[in-house]
Design a protein around this nucleic acid. Structure first.
Lengths: 140, 140
DNA sequence: CCGTTCTTTTGAGTTACTCAAAAGAACGGG
DNA sequence: CCCGTTCTTTTGAGTAACTCAAAAGAACGG
């Protein structure tokens, strides 16, 4: 019997291996997670894995479109399971915490720069910078 | 006699050293440049410098607000002299070339996410991804 | 010209990956 | 159900881009 994650993997043209399922499960329970944290979560279930394998799996899943990779300035790459909608992120300038932000004003303005110097624009990515709730409290 | 760059440095509270002036000159002539390219440009004028010194200078100038640092996903940090206006960037997904994009629709929509999950938003950063003119030609 | 303070140099160390070869699983066909 | 091919993971090495710290060297106010 196949689980939903097994099918998702196979539908994407990937073999359903224990490592990949464990990574997807980890990302389902933690949003905006770096490779190191994924590795620790996966290690609980699959003690023989290595950080390189996790990097490898994360790269494969990203290429397959099953997860999304973001790279906020100043932190390692983060991975998230929420895909398909082009949502954006808020990053705390103090602690690096990341939150999701739904696409702002009907998405059109985000995607149409007035002049792009001859570039063909395919996607737009918005990162908001500010303070997360707990750092606001700490700073008052 | 002070040059304009000397004064700019002192006005920012920094000593006017040969290395800092050379870095500012390099960035005046090249937009969106990484530390390695700045180092090579500075080396022509100041052969005794090192890549670490250039990193150090770039960090100081960024902190002082004399240059701006951007970190597009997948490439090293880039530095630019154009500051003060909050303009955005287009990055070529094929070759990594970077262009400037003026702020899109009057800037207000960019800065006001509908809901930021309790975060206080201070700035917004937009990165557009697409193909630069020469990669468009190469791909046809 | 001098001394203090700021910068740069030099050298080591780190993080976050990337690359490659060999061993080990998936899974479709028989 | 088993087998062989093909895909994955493991293991181990290597790299880029910084960061950190101590000592030597410049700026600049007095």
């Amino acid at each position: 019997m196949d689980t939903a994650l097994d099918s998702a993997l196979r539908d994407a043209g990937l073999r359903a291996t224990a490592g990949r399922v464990a990574v997807l499960e980890a990302l389902d329970s933690m949003a905006h997670t770096d490779a190191e944290r994924v590795f620790r979560a996966v290690s609980d279930v699959l003690p023989t894995t290595s950080i390189q394998s996790v990097h490898n799996i994360l790269a494969d899943l990203t290429t397959a479109g099953l997860i999304r990779r973001i790279e906020p300035a100043g932190s390692a790459a983060l991975y998230e399971r929420r895909i398909g909608d082009n949502h954006h992120h808020v990053v705390c300038t103090s602690c690096g915490a990341v939150g999701d932000v739904d696409c702002v004003v009907g998405e059109a303005p985000c995607l149409t720069p007035s002049s792009a110097g001859g570039f063909t624009v395919q996607t737009a990515e918005v990162t908001f910078w500010g303070l997360c709730p707990s750092c606001q409290n700490a700073a008052q």
